[in-house]
């Protein structure tokens, strides 16, 4: 069974800083990581491979330095890595991204065998859109299973899969046919530590690097900025609320006095809250 995991290399958002004066992003020195949500997808894919046999290919679209994330995935235990990189892809929105990745997935199918399952994380931590997975599924007519919490059953020979999906207000148990696309929920497994052997293999491995042409993309108008229906009109930092914060005095005051003044001010500004609280308290 062939499984492909789509990953993204993202800036470690915990370390992004905004310049206090110019309000621009200070990108220098921000380290990149594999999008943390994608690691749950990678681990789940490797577990299925270990159970049913086959191969896990990791695929990413990004600049040449995204090779670091692919090599990391090989260290964890992926079998093959494909990097889709081309200036043409710069500025892709989610529609253009799903086009490029779907094209590469088709090419992967031709070269390395068609995947039965495609995995992605539930979203990325930089874009947070959760749109690329469904976009790929639609373009390749893969059965779409988003927010999967657990794979209940998989039968590669019968080409069927049953999963638990996190829905509004509960868990949906869904069954469908392969090939399918799964976006994996976070926290459902823990990425394994790579073995010494996989680390060695990763260090020596040759990463498959494709540009648009190599991935079989003929229509460059569907890529990058040109292929993106959305445009970013402006990027900005929000301005402080017009009404300035009222700082309550705290210097040299005991915590009890501060607390009393906070409560007084809350009830003064929102008188209804006092009544609500008294009713709640009386009902206890």
């Amino acid at each position: 069974m062939h499984i492909v995991v789509c990953m993204k290399q993202v800036p470690d958002s915990a370390q992004i800083r905004v310049h206090p004066v110019t309000n621009t992003i200070m990108r220098q020195g921000v380290p990149t990581i594999i999008n943390p949500y994608d690691l749950f997808a990678l681990e789940e894919a490797m577990r299925l491979r270990d159970q049913f046999g086959g191969e896990v290919t990791v695929l990413t679209m990004g600049p040449p330095m995204a090779e670091d994330s692919l090599r990391k995935a090989l260290t964890f235990g992926a079998d093959r890595a494909v990097l889709l990189t081309d200036r043409t892809f710069a500025g892709s929105d989610t529609l253009a991204t799903s086009f490029a990745l779907a094209s590469a997935l088709s090419k992967i199918g031709e070269v390395f065998g068609p995947p039965s399952l495609v995995f992605t994380g539930k979203q990325t931590i930089d874009g947070d859109t959760a749109q690329v997975g469904p976009g790929i599924a639609k373009r390749l007519a893969l059965h779409q299973l988003t927010y999967v919490a657990r794979i209940v059953a998989l039968d590669p020979d019968a080409a069927t899969i049953t999963v638990e999906r996190r829905a509004e207000g509960g868990i949906q148990v869904l069954s469908t046919r392969l090939p399918a696309l799964i976006t994996m929920l976070e926290g459902v497994n823990e990425i394994r530590r790579g073995t010494l052997e996989s680390a060695y293999r990763a260090a020596c491995a040759e990463i498959v690097i494709w540009n648009a042409a190599a991935a079989g993309i003929g229509d460059l108008g569907k890529c990058g900025l040109r292929g993106s229906p959305t445009i970013v009109k402006k990027v900005f930092a929000p301005s402080p609320r017009a009404e300035k914060v009222q700082q309550l005095p705290t210097a040299d005051l005991p915590a009890e006095a501060v607390a009393e003044s906070v409560i007084r001010e809350i009830f003064k500004r929102q008188p209804a809250i006092e009544g609500d609280l008294v009713r709640f308290s009386a009902g206890q």
Binding site: P11, S13, A14, I16, R17, V18, N23, I25, I125, D126, D128, P229, T230, I231, V232, K233, K234, V235, F236, A237, P238
Partner: peptide
Amino acid sequence: FGGSLLCTILT
């Protein structure tokens, strides 16, 4: 940018 800035987007 991971919630560090806002952007306005048009289609």
